[in-house]
């Protein structure tokens, strides 16, 4: 039985009261599809108390906002979020559902695709619609290849996750999206998961996934204490803190900061690699960054060879000099 869906849903993530800006990346991506097919774009807000977020989203390029509100959706319980989205999509029949390729997206999008008998593809960094058919580009093999994937969902919707930071965030629009509520009934899904607790990270650090700027440190730091240099520069630039596996394995910084094949894949506007040689497994996680700055004593290492700006020197001297130069520049521009 062929599936006759229409419209694009962009599923937003609200965690502990905060709306992830990845929704605005999804709206940019979703507009490509919706405009090509002359369909409407709906931003979906799902959770508890998320109706209050509709104002933040109303003038950001969506045609409609659909609110799925229920106490049972307060935390990420995969079956609950899947159940609520599946029920709503079963009624509204969107042709496309977009999620960010975060833990949320990787957990919920595949389950929704199975429940609705659709197709699922991950990590889109570009989307094209030709004669109504959707294709996407994604990287594979440790960012060594870009593959083009055709999506042919006959029996259900197309479910796609987009690579974080691959699409610009949508700007403000003139028109305001109309808000509607969808019914949520926990009896419509089977739940074998119980949410127990959440423990917040003590350090309120900028998360790597959605970071515009990242400063990363590697073995060239020499010792764990020198990570303070990385944190200083990150603070000065308003950047998140990343690391190579060498220093994570040495216990200088927790795993969640690791960038690379076996860590996080990131795509910031600015990536500053300090004392990182640029082995292929590290590059796999960050080489799609717009601007790369390398600071290294070895001008011939791979990172220095591919950096947009390479600075040859000892990072223990260079980084403090950069921080004070930034202070100086900011100071004079504030004064003028």
């Amino acid at each position: 039985m062929a599936y006759e869906g229409k419209g694009v849903w962009c599923v937003g993530e609200v965690r502990h009261g905060d709306l992830s800006p990845s929704l605005f990346e999804l709206i940019t991506a979703g507009r490509i599809i919706a405009d090509a097919r002359s369909e409407t774009l709906t931003a979906v807000l799902i959770g508890k108390g998320v109706a209050a977020k509709a104002d933040e989203v109303a003038a950001r390029g969506a045609d409609k906002i659909l609110v799925l509100e229920h106490d049972a959706l307060d935390q990420l319980v995969d079956e609950a979020h899947t159940g609520a989205l599946t029920a709503a999509a079963g009624t509204e029949k969107p042709r496309t559902l977009l999620f960010s390729a975060s833990v949320y997206g990787r957990s919920v999008a595949p389950r929704v695709a199975v429940a609705l008998g659709g197709a699922v593809a991950s990590d889109a960094s570009a989307l094209t619609v030709t004669d109504g058919k959707l294709t996407l580009e994604r990287s594979a093999f440790g960012s060594a290849v870009i593959s083009t994937v055709a999506v042919n969902a006959a029996d259900g919707p197309e479910v796609v996750t987009t690579a974080p930071m691959a699409f610009e965030r949508s700007g403000t629009s003139e028109t305001k999206a109309e808000v509607t509520q969808a019914a949520v009934d926990p009896a419509s899904w089977t739940q074998n998961t119980e949410f127990v607790s959440f423990s917040a990270d003590e350090s309120k650090e900028i998360d790597l996934g959605g970071a515009e700027k990242i400063v990363s440190g590697g073995r060239g730091l020499g010792n764990a204490d020198n990570f303070s240099l990385i944190r200083d520069l990150a603070k000065s630039l308003g950047a998140a803190v990343g690391a190579s596996r060498a220093v994570v394995d040495s216990g200088w910084i927790p795993y969640k900061h690791q960038v690379g094949l076996t860590g996080r894949q990131v795509r910031p506007r600015l990536y500053v690699a300090c004392g990182i040689s640029g082995q292929i497994q590290h590059l796999a996680g960050m080489k799609s960054s717009d601007v790369i700055v390398a600071i290294n004593t070895d001008a011939d290492c791979p990172m220095m060879k591919l950096a947009t700006y390479s600075v040859k020197g000892d990072l223990t001297q260079i980084i403090p000099a950069i921080v004070s130069e930034i202070d100086k520049v900011r100071g004079s521009s504030n004064g003028s």
Binding site: G118, A119, V120, A121, T135, S139, A140, S143, A144, V145, I146, S147, T148, V149, A150, V151, N152, A153, A154, D155, K287, I292, A299, K305, L306, A307, T308, Y309, S310, V311, K312, G313, D314, Q317, I318, P320, A321
Partner: peptide, 24 residues
């Protein structure tokens, strides 16, 4: 429902600018 149409190697990044200077 999905299929890889083609794969291409990611174009290598070209070398950028080496920042000059005598001192840090």
């Amino acid at each position: 429902p999905t299929g890889v149409v083609k794969m291409e190697p990611v174009p290598a990044r070209t070398a950028g600018t080496a920042i000059t200077g005598e001192t840090p």
